[in-house]
Amino acid sequence: MAGAKQKAQQIIDDNKVVVFSKSYCPYCRASKSLLDEKNAKYFLMELDQVSDGAALQDALEEITGQRSVPNIFIDKKHIGGNSDLQAKKGELDGLLQQAGAV
Rank of each mutant, 00 (worst) to 15 (best):
L44W: 05
D75S: 10
E61P: 04
P26R: 13
V19N: 04
G53W: 10
D36R: 13
L95Q: 13
K89R: 15
K38W: 11
S68F: 03
F20I: 03
I63K: 02
G80C: 06
E62S: 11
F73D: 00
K7Q: 09
V18F: 07
D75K: 13
D84E: 08
V19C: 03
F73A: 00
K32Q: 07
I72F: 06
F43H: 14
G90I: 04
G65M: 05
M45P: 00
L95P: 00
E61I: 11
K22Q: 11
K32Y: 00
S68V: 03
K77I: 07
D93S: 09
D48S: 11
N15D: 10
L35K: 04
G53N: 08
D48V: 06
Q49E: 12
V19I: 15
V69Y: 01
D93V: 14
I79K: 03
D14Q: 14
G100H: 09
L60A: 04
E37V: 03
D84P: 07
Q98K: 08
Q86Y: 01
Q49L: 14
Q57V: 06
E46T: 13
D84Y: 13
I79P: 05
G94V: 02
L96V: 11
D93Q: 14
V19H: 04
L47I: 08
V19M: 10
G100N: 14
E91K: 15
G100R: 09
S23L: 11
S68G: 09
V69R: 00
K7R: 10
Q49K: 06
Q6D: 09
K77H: 12
L35E: 01
R29H: 12
H78D: 08
A30K: 03
K32G: 02
K76E: 14
A101W: 04
A55M: 15
I63C: 02
Q57A: 08
E37Y: 07
L56D: 00
V102G: 07
Q10M: 07
I63E: 07
M1T: 10
Q98G: 05
L56C: 01
D48G: 14
E46S: 12
Q57W: 01
